[in-house]
Write a protein that binds this DNA or RNA. Sequence first.
DNA 1: AACAAACAGGATAAGAATGTCAACTTTACG
DNA 2: CGTAAAGTTGACATTCTTATCCTGTTTGTT
Lengths: 142, 142
Amino acid sequence: MFSQTVEYALRAVIHLAQYAPKARKTQDIAKATQVPAAYLTKVLQNLGAHGIVRLQRGVGGGVSLDRSPDQITILDIVNAVDPIQRITTCPLQLSNHGVRLCALHRRMDNALKGIEEAFGSTTMAELLKDPNRSTPLCEESP
Amino acid sequence: MFSQTVEYALRAVIHLAQYAPKARKTQDIAKATQVPAAYLTKVLQNLGAHGIVRLQRGVGGGVSLDRSPDQITILDIVNAVDPIQRITTCPLQLSNHGVRLCALHRRMDNALKGIEEAFGSTTMAELLKDPNRSTPLCEESP
DNA sequence: AACAAACAGGATAAGAATGTCAACTTTACG
DNA sequence: CGTAAAGTTGACATTCTTATCCTGTTTGTT
């Protein structure tokens, strides 16, 4: 349902949020999040192009968040690497479906809207301080 | 977000619901729903294997619903062709995440749960008699 | 300036999803 | 029984996602 790429991107950003505002090397992120390092570089490029992370080359460089963890939602990350495509027009080319969706596609779009709302209302900061759960990505007990 | 295959399957079943309990030929379904005919046969096979539709060979055969339209939900169809995979265990192999998901994956799973609930509570019959919208797949005005 | 650390970017490949095709089997009916 | 209608099946083609690798460029340090 959610692509691998989305999963990887979320892991990477959460990891960075844990270290914010410090930078982390791609290799270290890859190890900590169990994401293939070579592929992670692509994902991070993408996140960089969308203003989620900042990429710094050279010695002492690395990847860091471009905003504070409470200014990055799950939706920001999802939309950066694999945007949620709301259904705004009829997927068939039916003339009278263009404006108002049929019952089916209205409900499908509603489900997408639900995801957008859920993901848009949760920030990285909230994920990290969630009291009832183990810390994302971490082995340590709660 | 939802695969092409899911979209095709939903179109096909809605079309069949409009004609239920009569059978329709695959070619006719393909034309009406604008789905590639050769691929639609695969999708219909799948729906047949999951007890959504009945496939009848030979002269006068075709495809028909295996249950009445009010006994088939969107979720039934989705789960037949491209099942919603709930997140029940930590995607990483973190020992202490197995039982209770971390905040991230709990929220992702919650989004999936929302979709399941929305899709599980809507039947084909309801889609067809939705008063405020144009009929699914049909050119005719409401 | 030289060097090494670290990201940048293109080529490439494996795998899954989507789509096509042709030969085969079942079935109704004259 | 023969024939045409209709689904069945397996092989193949195409496109997208995921993944790898190698070479280049930037940058801090000596």
